[in-house]
Structure formats: C-alpha cells, structure tokens
C-alpha cells in the first residue's frame, strides 16, 4: 500500500489527517475496490445494455433516493457530532450521534423492504447479470452499513462522557471517516444502479 500513510508526517506538510492515519489504508483500499466494482458493472452493462435497462426499470427508485437522503442526513449528524465533541458539548454530541444511528437504522429498514419486494417478485441473485450486480453491490454496501452502525453505537456510547483527550477525539474522527466513506460509496452506487439511462 501507500507507504506515505505509514510515516510520520514531515514538518513541511501542513494539515490535519482526519482520524487515525492508519485507517486511511483501509478507507482508500476499500474505495478502490468499490471503484473497480463500479467500473466492471458498467463494462458488463455495455455488453448487454438492453437487458440492464429493462431490469433497472423494475427497481424502485424511491427506495434508493430515500436511502440516499437518509445517509446524507446521517453523515451531517456525524459531522455536527464530532464538532460538538471537540467543543466538549457533550449532550449535543451524544444526541447527534444517536440521530446519525437512527438514520442508519432507517437505511437498513428501507433496504429490508426493498429486498423483500424484489425477492417476492422472484428477482434474485441469479436472475440475470444486472440483478447479480444489484444484490452484490448493495449487499456489500449493506455489510459496510452494518459495521458502521456498530461503530456509530460505539461512538454514541463514548460521546456520553466529556472527551478530554486528543486520542478520544481521534477515535471519533476515525469512526466518522468510515461512516462518510459508506456515504460516498452509496452516492456513486445510487445513480449507477438505480438511475442510469
């Protein structure tokens, strides 16, 4: 991987790395793998545009859009929560992280209804190429959401007491970085799978 992330920053480099430096190995690695998946999705789509367009038409775009808004709101809560924790506004911070968590749960609930609707209609992983991608991409993303919910719960618990050490704030920033990454990936995934014409 990138050796730059391992080394202590030279003095000439100004700035603040959000979260623990090491977590960027994971974040950038994961984002690269998802980028690869997005690329291969369009590659296979190009081989059979008609099938992908017809299958896409059966998706419920409202579910996708509501989930986008939920994740965006959740991310905004996390930004505000980290900011509040930095300023030792403990009550605000824990309320904000709890709200972020609730939005994440909302995402999971919508996803549950969406999968349920698809599976009852007989559309599964092996229906066709489009649906393989639909389930794999949204499924892998959902796995990330689930991990993120655990982290958000952890961040909420931590933020209930005043955080005085820089290390504790860094921990919150690491969790926030992960959660925003989950948001970024969905932001690209949503138009790609649900909306592309």
């Amino acid at each position: 991987m990138n050796s730059a992330v391992d080394m202590p920053l030279p003095k000439t480099m100004k700035g603040h790395v959000p979260g623990e430096t090491g977590i960027w190995v994971f974040v950038l690695g994961d984002m690269s793998v998802f980028a690869l998946m997005f690329g291969t999705f369009l590659y296979y789509r190009a081989l059979d545009v008609d099938l992908y367009m017809r299958s896409q038409a059966t998706l419920n775009q409202n579910f996708g859009a509501i989930n986008t808004l939920l994740l965006l709101a959740s991310s905004w809560f996390v930004v505000m929560g980290v900011d509040a924790a930095r300023q030792r506004r403990t009550r605000a911070a824990s309320t904000l992280f709890a709200s972020a968590f609730v939005c994440g749960i909302g995402f999971a609930v919508v996803k549950f209804f969406e999968y349920h609707e698809k599976i009852s209609a007989g559309l599964t992983l092996t229906t066709n190429g489009f649906y393989s991608y639909y389930y794999m991409l949204t499924g892998l993303h959902f796995a990330h959401v689930s991990i993120g919910l655990v982290l958000l719960g952890f961040m909420w618990a931590k933020s209930r007491k005043p955080l005085t050490e820089a290390k504790q704030i860094m921990l919150l920033e690491s969790g926030a970085t992960y959660w925003h990454m989950v948001d970024v990936l969905w932001i690209v995934l949503f138009p790609l799978i649900y909306l592309l014409k």
């Binding site: 991987m1 391992d6 623990e20 430096t21 977590i23 190995v25 994971f26 690695g29």
Partner: peptide, 11 residues
C-alpha cells in the same frame, strides 16, 4: 506491529 498494518488486514 505498525497500526496501519492492522487496518490493512481488515481490508
């Protein structure tokens, strides 16, 4: 172990 290698292994 350097901490980044922990995150690398998660990935």
């Amino acid at each position: 172990f350097p901490r980044w290698s922990g995150y690398f292994n998660v990935w």
